[in-house]
Amino acid sequence: MKTENENSPDDSHDSKPSWIERNVNMFIMGLVIACIATLVAQLVFRPMFSTEHPAHFEIEAIFGFEAIFGFVAFVAVVFLGWVLRMFVKRKEDYYDS
């Protein structure tokens, strides 16, 4: 594939960490706060849930169900990835050789 980065600026003048890279911890803290905020919001808005969003299953009524589910499902998918990789991983040129 022909690339068009031949005229790109040199690598050196922009090598220092960007504002985002310098504030990774702040972003993580922001995420944790947002997570806590959703749990608090669930407590605050709970009385409105049953009227505006009829729950289809009892499990939905458990406090923080979707939070736990999201976390566990994500971890489970990634671990399944580890397992799958053991079976299907081959060299990059597998089909070319």
């Binding site: 993580i28 995420l31 944790v32 947002a34 997570c35 959703t38 749990l39 919001a41 669930q42 808005f45 409105m48 849930f49 505006e52 969003h53 729950a55 939905e60 923080g64 979707e66 939070a67 736990i68 589910f69 999201g70 976390f71 566990v72 499902a73 994500f74 971890v75 990634v78």
Partner: peptide
């Protein structure tokens, strides 16, 4: 856009993102 749907969806997505940070 009901409070329940927005909050539930945000919980699912943000805690999934938290799981990524953890991993």
């Amino acid at each position: 856009y009901t409070p329940a749907h927005v909050i539930m969806q945000l919980q699912l997505l943000l805690f999934a993102a938290l799981a990524f940070v953890f991993l």
